[in-house]
Design a protein around this nucleic acid. Structure first.
Lengths: 251, 251
DNA sequence: TTATTTATGTACCGTCTCGCATAAAATGGG
DNA sequence: CCCATTTTATGCGAGACGGTACATAAATAA
């Protein structure tokens, strides 16, 4: 956590260094959010307790960032949406950029969890593919003010170019999806669902890029039916193994 | 947040209504940019001449918008980069949002022109595909401060959700690319470069989504060689006609 | 109880934001 | 030559921006 920005005498890092693993204990709290007062650890911390649950506050912040992006979302917007006054917000999550990074990680956990069920090895290849794209459509089209799209794609388009740390998270997210798709296809080959000479990288590319094009088009309010056509083509193509990858090129 | 519409008494539209086709005459100037003083129309307008060329000023503005996006680019940034003080800038292009839209149209003309050579009917399908992706890589990886990516993808991720007019331009750009690819493939079929039972929509999707995934990854500093691999796969796939589209699905 | 620790709410800082009012400068028309 | 027209530069102003002091409130430890 080098974080070159920020002037001297930054308090939040000092707090982390002083209280040690306090943040870890808080982060261990499950997102189930059963009751507002019932925290995870039986040991109560020393001072005045927080009036908010960090998990749900982060989710609220994420909503705002997903709607407008980093630059267009002000701390006032965030403070209002999270129900936390700015000084508390700053004390709990650091400055705006820190909050953005934490919200992004929250997104990765949340959406990663939604996609995880689609990659369940108990499913057939086709079942997995159907769920992957069904989840993608649900995630990308949801939103009170309009389709929120894919946060990784949004962030790649805005902050990833100039900010190395944010870029790192984007690259990690992209690589994670590629890897999951590759593993899924290799498992399908091992099971005999796809022929052993399948061009895995081609199928990974077709499926992954279909997700990206869906994310982009969703943000522009492309009707769900149109996106489903794109998804259907990718699913059928992958599940057919690329329709004879061993066929000789025609020219 | 994208700032509603603009209050009453907006001057730039009034000026357009008064001076009539002034903007059209300026817009008709070729982008060749031969000399700074030699304007398009031989008739000089009445008042004090402009100290800048609208075309190159728009190009400068576009550079800034492509680097940081709409919200993160201030009018001071734009004013400095264009070499135009804010009031002149406002008088010539309207407010920030108007300037963004005009810069976007400039981008569409410029990049559309670069891609146009790739869609020359005199080229073979493979030659066209090679040029399309070579152009995409050049355009998306260029930039003094980092890879600028695809402006349409960037704008889809940021402003397109909440601003209908910007969204319209994004949708037009997306549809334009799809249409050009479709036409290219249909021509290839008519010439016998691809079999008549080729699944055109599948190939359009694979090529178009490859462009999108390249644009996204480029913004995150993915090495050019990695992007070339993606391009290569899309090119070979399309030029092989999808490797037997008529093959029966395996399951 | 008292001390300590942590979080909260108000209020504020300096800076930047966008847009515009104003007046000077540069051209063509009469 | 003077006027009309258009663009230029200076600079202002109301508000939003990110970030922070400060005093207060609420909890635990001694």
């Amino acid at each position: 956590m080098v974080q070159k920005r920020k002037g001297p005498s930054s308090r939040p890092p000092a707090k982390e260094a002083a209280s040690g693993h306090a943040d870890v204990a808080v982060a261990a709290a499950e997102a189930t959010a059963a009751g507002p007062e019932q925290s995870s650890a039986p040991v109560r911390k020393r001072g005045r307790p927080r009036a908010f649950t960090p998990e749900v506050a982060l989710a609220r912040a994420l909503d705002r960032f997903r709607d407008g992006g980093y630059a267009a979302t002000s701390l006032d917007d965030l403070s209002a949406a999270m129900g936390i006054n700015r000084p508390s917000l700053y004390g709990a999550f650091g400055d705006k950029r820190d909050l953005f990074l934490k919200a992004y990680e929250h997104y990765r956990d949340e959406v990663g969890g939604q996609f995880a069920t689609a990659f369940d090895p108990a499913l057939t290849l086709r079942q997995s593919m159907e769920r992957i794209f069904a989840t993608a459509l649900d995630v990308y089209l949801a939103g009170d003010n309009g389709p929120r799209g894919c946060f990784t794609v949004m962030t790649a388009g805005s902050e990833a170019m100039a900010d190395p740390e944010i870029r790192g998270t984007v690259l990690r997210a992209l690589a994670s999806t590629d890897k999951a798709l590759r593993k899924l296809l290799e498992l399908a080959i091992a099971r005999g669902e796809l022929p052993s000479d399948t061009d895995v990288e081609l199928l990974v590319q077709v499926a992954g890029s279909a997700i990206h094009t869906i994310a982009i088009r969703a943000r522009a309010w492309t009707p769900r039916a149109d996106l489903e056509v794109i998804a259907r083509r990718a699913i059928d193509f992958v599940c057919s193994g690329g329709a004879a990858a061993s066929a000789a090129p025609r020219r």
